[in-house]
Design a protein around this nucleic acid. Structure first.
Lengths: 189, 189
DNA sequence: CGGCGAAAGCTAAGGGGGTTAGCTTTATGG
DNA sequence: CCATAAAGCTAACCCCCTTAGCTTTCGCCG
């Protein structure tokens, strides 16, 4: 019988695809093994277990997000960069509904790759705020607000938490505009 | 052998306590049954299954949050009400780390109690925005922003997503102040 | 007061996912 | 060409959820 030729890489990448298809909560070793044409315990040759799989998925997704945020911000500044970055963030979550929730775990302090990815993602946001003359604690606070608002919006939207008929895209645009307003007036309040 | 005297009410209430103790993801029928001194299948006399339990927990938590938000806003207006409500929201989540995540599922359209609780919670926020002269679509957008920002902050904080040493309470206060700024300037931008 | 019915609780059984142990087989490099 | 490390497998076990069907308790009504 031929060998499947798996590696930790391919396993995690396929897990990402599967998660996007069936949802983060239904990403299961059983389903993943079936999809890879392999018996379930064979996966343990590449991944420590289901928890480690989710962890690795978090790293993958965080790295992807970091890249997309950085790309979105490139060549833009101020409100322009803010809008582009927020939109890129939300669209990644919509495009990858299974990977995105994996992001919600704290970065593993023992995984340099994870830490680097997280720092890259936060750094992309942090950089934008220089366009608003924010630095130091203010920049940290503003970054946290950006992450909270966009992440919160994404998860509420994904959960179907917005009941009223008002168009959600419009609400998102308004929120980003309001963030811009808040950032422009951050120091004078 | 004496009877435990359970009801759907008591089961859900105990589930809430258990969830707060062990975490939302480890709220399990097995643990709940053990805690109630009952065999696992007996729970099915009171709850349809594990999913229904989480659903009912969502209703409970949403109703509790609605009450706390309403209470916090009572007798206050403007930025004062905003701060009080946001703080009440966050503190509920900190005080009930197991119940709060249960809230993240969409309200069951067939459960009037759930719908009422959700509407009450959103209404409490919506009401605050009248103090900023916001109404109609603008009020809806502003409400969504409030929910997104506060909910996002809560989940990021709970997940340990804020890595930097900067004090998290301060960041939260700053975010609420920034929301206030955004709301005060909502129409003129 | 006695018994009848509804409901509470139980045991048994089966399904699915995760994990470990230990074996077989494949590929690779000396 | 063969030795060894790694890939993959089977078997077995655990935990949790769910359903079926039985027993027992409680409350009510004759």
């Amino acid at each position: 019988m031929p060998r499947a030729g798996l590696t930790p890489q391919t396993v995690v990448r396929e897990a990402a695809v599967l998660a996007d298809e069936v949802g983060h909560d239904r990403l299961t070793l059983a389903a993943l093994a079936a999809r890879l044409g392999v018996a379930l315990p064979s996966l343990y040759k590449h991944v420590r277990g289901v928890d480690a799989l989710h962890q690795k998925l978090a790293v993958l997704a965080t790295a992807e997000i970091a890249t997309e945020l950085t790309t979105a911000a490139a060549g833009r500044a101020g409100g322009d960069a803010l809008r582009a970055t927020a939109t890129a963030f939300r669209e990644y979550a919509r495009r990858h509904p299974g990977r995105y929730p994996a992001t919600q775990r704290a970065p593993d302090p023992d995984d340099p790759e994870h830490l680097a990815a997280a720092e890259r993602a936060v750094g992309a946001i942090y950089a934008i705020l220089r366009g608003y003359d924010l630095a130091g604690d203010a920049a940290v606070d503003a970054t946290r607000m950006f992450r909270a608002a966009v992440h919160g919006f994404i998860t509420l939207e994904a959960a179907g938490g917005f009941g009223l008929p008002r168009d959600i895209d419009r609400s998102f645009d308004e929120m980003v505009a309001a963030l811009d307003t808040a950032y422009r007036n951050w120091r004078s309040r």
